[in-house]
Amino acid sequence: MSLTTWMLLAAASANPCVEEQLRHGAEDTTLGQIRAHCNLEADDDDSAASERIDAEMAAAEERFVLNAHHNNYILPASYNRRPNEAGWEYAPEAMDNWEVKFQLSVKVPVTPEWFSGQGRFYVAYTNQSWWQAYNKDASAPFRETNHMPELIYFHRPNWQWGEWKVEALSLAFNHQSNGQSGTQSRSWNRIIGGGAVSNGAWTFGAQAWHRLKEDPKSSPDDPRGDDNPDITDFMGHGELLMLYKRDERNLSLRLRGNLATGKGGVEAGWSLPLFAKLRGYVQIYYGYGESLIDYNVKSERVSLGFEFTPWL
């Protein structure tokens, strides 16, 4: 038995990915493929983005593991200086400026790996909620909840130019809705293409989307038809994401908007480890499109709380 085989067998006892491949991998899987798939030869100079993708690939085969998609957090202290009273259903009680904002975002692989482990389909779900938890006069309602299921093809091309590496390419069908009816209903369907490049602590991502056309409504109360025909005027046709990770501290910046209308939104975040998997998290949002109900209303929000899975 070769030294490499002995190393793989020894690693299997400490590496669930290797054990899964040895037990259930295809008969023609090579040692090189196992090493690459399970990142046994990780370079100490790997970027923060590479480390996250490697960790996801190692955990993807685990039966009881759900991978994070976007970051997951709960922000108990979330203050919006410009709350949107227009969609508030609980008058005469006023809407609180303070609420709880949280996000749950997960994904799971639904196909085998293709192209020597470089490509795979995932289903993902992201839930983002704004909860008037401190508004006792209105019985602490959930003001808005956005649901976003996706079908995503993820491809890791491993292209590199100098110090910059293309970490990922993706193509997704995306549906987002606030689950409401009547005049409060908001939704849209998109085809989204994206990519990410990295260099050490820096990662830059970009997405461009095409909104799928819907028929116009015959009246504002018509349950069929387009709930928000002008949404791209405020949400644009794409977004940019900048991430920086150093010493387990994460900085993030998301930019989204429409150059033709001059409207859009920016979200900035900073997180640092506290203990176990709990991280402190500060988030700032300014502009349009923070939520679907407020897609055409400007928010000015500062939030403080906890992050459970960071971007990187």
Rank of each mutant, 00 (worst) to 15 (best):
M1C: 04
S2R: 12
L3Q: 01
L3I: 11
T5Y: 08
M7N: 08
L9S: 04
S13F: 13
L22N: 02
Q33H: 12
I34F: 09
R35Q: 10
R35L: 05
D43S: 02
A49I: 14
S50M: 15
I53M: 09
A55M: 07
A55H: 10
E56F: 15
M57E: 08
A59D: 04
E61M: 14
E61A: 13
L66R: 00
N67S: 11
H70L: 12
H70Y: 12
I74K: 08
N80I: 06
R82P: 03
P83C: 01
P83Y: 03
N84L: 10
N84E: 02
E85V: 08
A86P: 01
G87F: 03
A91S: 04
P92L: 05
V100R: 11
L104E: 06
K107Y: 04
P109N: 07
W114F: 13
F115H: 03
Q118Y: 03
Y122L: 00
N127F: 12
A133R: 00
K136M: 07
A138P: 09
R143F: 14
E144G: 03
P149I: 09
F154M: 12
H155I: 05
N158R: 07
W159P: 01
W161I: 14
W164S: 01
V166C: 10
A168Q: 15
A168T: 13
L169T: 13
L169N: 02
L171R: 13
F173A: 09
S177L: 02
S177Y: 10
G179H: 13
Q180C: 01
R186C: 05
W188T: 06
F204R: 00
F204N: 01
W209R: 00
H210K: 05
D215V: 08
K217L: 04
K217A: 05
S218N: 09
P220E: 03
D221K: 14
P223Q: 12
D230H: 07
M235H: 02
L243I: 15
R246D: 07
R249A: 07
L251H: 04
L253P: 02
R254L: 11
L255C: 05
A260F: 05
A268N: 07
G269I: 13
V282I: 13
V282K: 03
I284M: 06
I284G: 13
Y285C: 04
Y285M: 02
L292C: 03
I293K: 01
R301H: 06
L304H: 14
T309Y: 11
P310H: 11
W311Q: 09
